[in-house]
C-alpha cells in the first residue's frame, strides 16, 4: 500500500486517493484545431516510463484536491511536487 503525501493533508494511505495518471497533459487550447492524430494522442496516449513519473492523484476521501507527485514506477518511491497551477484555456 502506497503512502501518499497530500500537499494539504500530509501523509495518507493510498486507499484515500484515486489515481489520475500522467500529470501535465493539458487539455488542448483549441481542440478543433487539432488533426485526428493529435486529438487521438491527447485522448489516449500517455507516457508509461519505468522510473520517475510525474503523476496525478486526488485525495478523494480527504480534501478532494488534485495534486501531482513524482513516483518511481520501479520502486514506488515517491516525492512530492508542488500543486500545479494551470494557465487558463478555452
Amino acid at each position: 500500500m502506497l503512502q501518499i503525501r497530500c500537499p494539504w493533508c500530509g501523509d495518507r494511505e493510498e486507499t484515500e486517493f484515486r489515481y489520475g495518471g500522467q500529470a501535465h497533459v493539458d487539455y488542448p487550447r483549441d481542440p478543433a484545431a487539432l488533426d485526428d492524430r493529435a486529438w487521438g494522442e491527447y485522448l489516449f496516449v500517455r507516457d508509461n516510463p519505468k522510473g520517475e513519473f510525474a503523476e496525478r492523484w486526488v485525495h478523494t476521501a480527504g480534501c478532494r484536491r488534485w495534486f501531482t507527485t513524482v513516483r518511481d514506477t520501479a520502486t514506488n518511491q515517491m516525492r512530492a511536487e508542488l500543486p500545479s497551477a494551470r494557465k487558463p484555456v478555452m
Partner: peptide
C-alpha cells in the same frame, strides 16, 4: 490503479 513495474501491488 497506478502505473507500476515493481511486480508488487497494494
Amino acid at each position: 490503479s497506478y502505473n507500476g513495474y515493481a511486480h508488487r501491488g497494494s
